[in-house]
Design a protein around this nucleic acid. Structure first.
Length: 255
DNA sequence: ATGGCTTTTAAAAAAAGA
């Protein structure tokens, strides 16, 4: 069982990449963020032709999430029921005996801005909702773009990023609060190469110089973590022409 | 020190991302 997450930065532009990647990596579940498509524009037929069920929740220009699955998708929930949000950032569904949450955590723009406060408030409510989800669903996987680098190992230049958005203490504390629900960062269950990142700035040859951050994560509840045998970042699509600035992250679970 | 790119909206320039 393979679970993946990928911020595609416009599914309109990246659909060919998604289809190509799925052909090469036929994962069971792929959570997508930043579709930037209203639901009437969602490329449903192309994804179904690729052999995937799909649910999606989008909006114009910004945000938008989708869950693609080789298995039936049931009990779909759009957004955090305890947080009113016009921004489409969360989908939850039951797939193959697992509760799958696809999340696009707000970026936060810069420490001290309104968007940063929105991010922290959003994360607080997200935590409270996930606590309830975890109580109901022992097999819980929360995949997405968290827009938080868990610690300095996940940052190409920790000094430059210190206390900046994506790395600030309140954000990291909010992420730890998710871990404290019993959800573990599956990437850190395994030996990993130093300077493994999931996002690189388009500017300044960020990818070529590996100036990146690890901000896309797959969090697993204990029963799923026990089954997890690997978690890797697939850098390959970041090298394709006109790539997303994020790379997919893939967790593999045994039986 | 700054911005350096990409996408969207919408018709030139600006916001947003991270």
């Amino acid at each position: 069982m393979k679970l993946a997450t990928w911020n595609v930065n416009s599914l309109n532009v990246r659909l060919p990449h998604v289809l190509k990647w799925l052909q090469e990596n036929p994962v069971d579940v792929l959570c997508i963020q930043e579709t930037k498509l209203t639901d009437d524009k969602f490329p449903l037929a192309a994804i179904q032709e690729a052999g995937y069920h799909v649910v999606f929740s989008g909006q114009k220009t910004y945000n938008g999430v989708a869950i693609l699955s080789k298995h039936a998708i049931e009990d779909v929930v759009v957004n955090n029921p305890h947080y009113e949000d016009v921004q489409q950032r969360i989908l939850a569904a039951t797939i193959a005996g697992m509760r799958i949450v696809c999340a696009y955590v707000p970026n936060g723009q810069a420490v001290g801005t309104d968007k940063y406060e929105y991010k922290l408030g959003w994360l607080k409510s997200f935590r409270d909702w996930l606590e309830a989800e975890a109580a109901i669903h022992p097999n819980l996987a929360v995949l997405g773009d968290y827009n938080i680098a868990p610690d300095d190992r996940d940052v190409h230049d920790p000094a430059a990023w210190a206390d900046q958005v994506l790395c600030s203490v309140p954000e990291r504390t909010a992420l730890q609060a998710l871990f404290s629900l019993g959800l573990c960062d599956s990437f850190r269950l395994f030996e990993q190469a130093d300077k493994t990142f999931s996002w690189w700035d388009y500017r300044m040859l960020g990818f070529q110089k590996n100036k990146g951050l690890r901000i896309d994560h797959i969090l697993l509840s204990a029963p799923l973590a026990k089954r997890c045998v690997s978690c890797v970042v697939d850098r390959a699509p970041r090298k394709w022409e006109q790539p997303s600035d994020h790379a997919p992250v893939v967790a593999t679970l045994g039986d």
